[in-house]
């Protein structure tokens, strides 16, 4: 016998982390984005982060809309520039927990340079990159992450550009935490996000996510579920795998797991230690000569 539950008693356990007045989302049925947001919501609660002091920044694209569904300070910025905006937030108010949540095209292609340099600086932000392997918001064009000979609207004869191995890129640039999961691995993703939220420095999580509308149906997946099944079957958890071995190749296993977890001082720590006494103290500043194209020695007459 089934028990009838009063509809009013039903509440979504992650409700307090979401902007309920913005739901339903714009995302298609079968899209993996909502699933990743669910994991993120649980991770936010589990991490103990002060939600009033947590900001989420997105770029442009389907994933770029994540910031608008989460009940934090939400910033929906320009295409590719979520990371530099987040950098500004963090530097001007170090008390904030800053999360960038955006897509593969936004973060690794148009915003690729910022990704590299934020990792190099070890800027204290968490970047969640939802990789659906396609430019979905604009209607299914090939991305830097489109694998194998996949068909897209701009590669109608099949893609032939080699795809980007994102974990290897951010690892090489100096990220202190690098992991990859898929929309199938909801518990692992949640755990990874929780762990990353608690860590300091530049943290990066790639999440493979189905796009049935614009990637799936052109590339042999009947629906979102078919892509999820593939994640289930093809994913191999290899924590600590060298990132040069985790490229996504069509028909090959998808390596997931936590690849990098190391500690190194973040940007502000380095800055404070380098500046030492110069920081926050009113020092004597000369107003002497401006530019000295001829070299320092001419300046101080020493």
């Amino acid at each position: 016998m089934s028990t009838l539950i009063e509809p009013t008693a039903l509440t979504n356990p992650v409700e307090k982390v979401l902007r309920n007045d913005r739901i339903p989302t714009i995302w298609c049925p079968g899209c993996g984005l909502g699933t990743t947001v669910n994991s993120f919501a649980y991770a936010l609660m589990a991490s103990g982060a002060d939600l009033k002091k947590t900001a989420i920044v997105s770029g442009i694209g389907c994933s770029g809309r994540v910031s608008g569904y989460v009940a934090l300070d939400s910033f929906h910025t320009t295409h590719g520039r979520a990371i530099p905006f987040a950098t500004g937030l963090k530097l001007a108010n170090p008390e904030l927990t800053v999360v960038v949540y955006s897509g593969d095209g936004d973060l690794t292609s148009i915003g690729g340079n910022h990704l590299i340099h934020a990792a190099r600086r070890n800027m204290d932000i968490l970047v969640v990159c939802v990789n659906n392997m396609i430019y979905a918001m604009t209607g299914g064009q090939a991305a830097a992450t489109t694998p194998g000979a996949a068909t897209s609207t701009t590669t109608p004869y099949g893609s032939f550009e080699p795809e980007l191995n994102i974990p290897q890129l951010v690892d090489a640039a100096g990220a202190c935490y690098v992991a990859r999961w898929t929309a199938f691995h909801v518990k692992q993703l949640e755990k990874s996000m929780t762990e990353a939220l608690k860590k300091k420095g530049f943290r990066f999580i790639e999440v493979l996510s189905p796009c049935p509308t614009l990637y799936g149906r052109r590339n042999g997946y009947a629906d979102g579920l078919a892509q999820m099944k593939e994640y289930k079957e093809m994913a191999k958890v290899k924590n600590g795998a060298p990132t040069y071995e985790v490229a996504i190749t069509h028909g090959q296993p998808i390596i997931v797991g936590k690849f990098v977890d190391r500690d190194r001082p973040d940007y502000l720590t380095l800055m404070r230690s380098q500046l030492g006494a110069h920081y926050h103290e009113v020092a004597e500043v000369g107003v002497g000569c401006g530019d000295e194209s001829e070299g320092k020695e001419g300046c101080c007459s020493c």
């Binding site: 002497g288 000569c289 000295e292 001829e294 070299g295 020695e297 001419g298 300046c299 007459s301």
Partner: peptide
């Protein structure tokens, strides 16, 4: 003059 002679500093003075 040439670089290093302090031309700009002289002008500043």
């Amino acid at each position: 003059g040439f670089g290093g002679q302090g031309v700009i500093l002289a002008a500043h003075i």
